[in-house]
Computed example of a mutant assay.
Amino acid sequence: MYKRFLLPIDGSPPSEYAAAVGLALAKRLGASVVFAHVIEPHRYRDLHNYEEALERARTVGRALLEQWARKANHARVPCDVQLTSTEPENRPGVAEALMDVGVAHGCDLVVMGTHGRTGLPRMLLGSVAERMARLAPTPLLLVRGHDTKPTLFKHILVATDGSTFSELALQHADALAGALKAKLSVVYVVPDLTQLYVSAGRAWMFADPAQLQAQLAQEQSHLRAQGEYILKEAAERCTHAKQVHTLLREAGHHLIGERIREVADEIKADLIVMGTHGHTGLRKFLLGSVAEDVAQQAHQPILLVRNPAALTHPDESHLPPPGER
């Protein structure tokens, strides 16, 4: 399973909560953590002197790192701290600086909050998290909100579409459910071909509306059967989770991401796992774009798993499935 977490902190409530979730999860998995803070002097616009702003940024960063190092020591979780910057070596942004830290420390999971604000420097972890989701070579656990008590991840929901990308997400979800002794549910959402035909402009191929409806019904039935098969195969491949349940849902006139969020709320899942850039052959229903929609709207934390083969970032690291180190 995951051995070393990267926990970016900026002092905002969402960042603090995400770090608490990451620390608690690391303790349960026997992993170590790396707390990272990116200093950005230009965000202290109330100070006109650059050197003074730089020193303020460093002081705030060190204080945050020391605070979390003490918490890690109290929880008996091995930790390192890293104060870094966007300015040396002309790094383009916070996400890139954080990825450099993660690669340097051999981190295999990033846990971070979304829409975090520090108040004074107004550092937006929301936009940083979005860029991390697109570029990070490791799985990314996005945590929304700032509850007082970290979630225990007792029920994990993983979405599949039968692609190699969702297959990798299934491996991570299964391994995590096994390690945490959590219940695992697998959902497949059958796309609505009516929407696909209309949006793709294929309805003109059928002059007879009855013929169109018959064709759609036949293909929709095929997709439903395909979904049932994909779920059956997915359940058989889960070898770590003790409880595995499968759920087949119709998209109907709703977005696939919306259906996934509804299922997560319905079964009271406290973690959603999804692959990104998944391919089903139906270009309007890619789990990659659906994952972005779910990440933006879901109340639960979401674990985004990218296929290492799809990465193009120069600092990419080809990670094996969890448990195969």
Rank of each mutant, 00 (worst) to 15 (best):
G252T: 12
A217P: 04
F165E: 07
E130M: 07
R122T: 11
A133V: 06
V158E: 00
L125K: 10
C238H: 06
G227H: 06
C107M: 08
G178F: 11
P321V: 12
G102Y: 02
V128Q: 02
R224M: 13
Q218H: 06
S12M: 01
Y17G: 06
A159W: 08
R43D: 00
Q220L: 04
V77L: 03
W204K: 06
R224W: 05
M274L: 01
H105G: 05
A200V: 13
L125I: 14
A159T: 12
V94R: 02
E316I: 14
P321M: 03
L54W: 06
L124Y: 13
N307L: 12
M123Y: 08
E316C: 12
Q226M: 09
M205I: 14
R45A: 04
Q218K: 08
P308D: 07
H277P: 03
I272T: 02
G102D: 05
A241M: 09
A298T: 15
G227W: 10
Q243M: 11
V273G: 01
H279V: 11
G227V: 12
A63C: 04
S85L: 14
L255V: 13
A136Y: 00
H74S: 02
V244M: 01
A104H: 04
I9E: 02
E324N: 09
P139A: 15
H299M: 09
A75K: 09
Q218R: 05
F165I: 08
K284S: 10
L157W: 06
P209M: 08
G61S: 11
H240A: 08
L223Y: 06
G323V: 10
G201F: 12
D147G: 01
H105E: 11
L193K: 01
N73F: 00
P14Y: 05
T118M: 01
F5G: 03
A75D: 09
R134Y: 01
E316A: 15
T151R: 01
C107N: 10
T86C: 14
R58N: 07
C79A: 07
I272L: 00
K268D: 12
E236S: 15
R131S: 05
N49S: 12
G257W: 07
P191H: 04
E40R: 11
M1S: 13
S12I: 00
H146R: 02
P78S: 01
V198N: 05
T312P: 00
I302M: 04
F153C: 06
S32L: 10
E167P: 00
K149Q: 07
F35T: 13
V77R: 04
Y17H: 13
F5E: 03
S32K: 15
A53D: 09
R325M: 04
D265N: 06
L180C: 13
Q220C: 06
T164F: 03
P321C: 00
Y44T: 07
G257A: 07
F165T: 15
A210E: 12
V190Y: 03
P13M: 08
